[in-house]
Design a protein around this nucleic acid. Structure first.
Lengths: 107, 107
DNA sequence: TTGACATGCAACCATTTGGTTGCCTATCAT
DNA sequence: ATGATAGGCAACCAAATGGTTGCATGTCAA
């Protein structure tokens, strides 16, 4: 069970989010598949994938000399459920307080 | 309009997420309010708050010599809507592909 | 078996990050 | 006015991050 902190850290990098996007578009890609079109060496991509795998956002299977990468949407879902939702409750309250302060500014 | 990347980066740090938690628990706190109990200097907290403010996750108002910090839940909500939701669609598909691969492993 | 392909490992590098200390400025209360 | 309180600024530092290059290993196909 990877800590939520690992997931947040993994999602903090735009290259890694774009790798997740690519897997979302087409699941089960090899390392080389994921490399092409990117302005990065294969080794850099490997490192990013390792971080995504450690955060459990990506799961891999060896198939001969190929390593297939699959998106695991569960941790993303959990961020939504366990973290973002918390801030949705009370969102209107927070916003109305903000508004009240903005108006008080001109007193 | 702060780029979503800034928001993700701001959320990547546990100390910053805990500052948001504190504001969620009680909105409109001063810098010193937010400092106490934390194992960090005031200046470190200032830097974190600056990053949260740049990402538009926190808005501030001066009131005399005090600076009041308010949570802005909008960017968090947008991460949920614009990013996380995208991966919820197709979540079941992705999971069933994962399952299929896991089973294929034992052939 | 031998070359080509897919990936792994390790050392190295520059920059960013999260934190510190020291000092300065502004505001409030007496 | 003056001390205490709230915050700001800047320089500095160690460690983490994102990337590179070079070489090694494992696997497939002819």
């Amino acid at each position: 069970m990877p800590a939520m902190d690992e997931v947040f850290k993994a999602l903090a990098d735009a290259s890694r989010r774009s790798l997740l996007d690519r897997l979302h578009a087409r699941n089960g890609q090899t390392l080389n598949d994921l490399c092409d079109g990117l302005a990065m060496t294969r080794q850099a991509v490997t490192k990013h994938l390792a971080i995504l795998e450690a955060a459990n956002l990506v799961t891999t299977f060896r198939h001969g000399r190929e390593k297939l990468h699959y998106l695991n949407p569960v941790p993303i879902h959990q961020i939504g459920e366990r973290w973002i939702r918390k801030f949705e409750r009370g969102k209107l309250t927070a916003l109305s307080e903000l508004k009240r302060q903005l108006e008080k500014r001109d007193e």
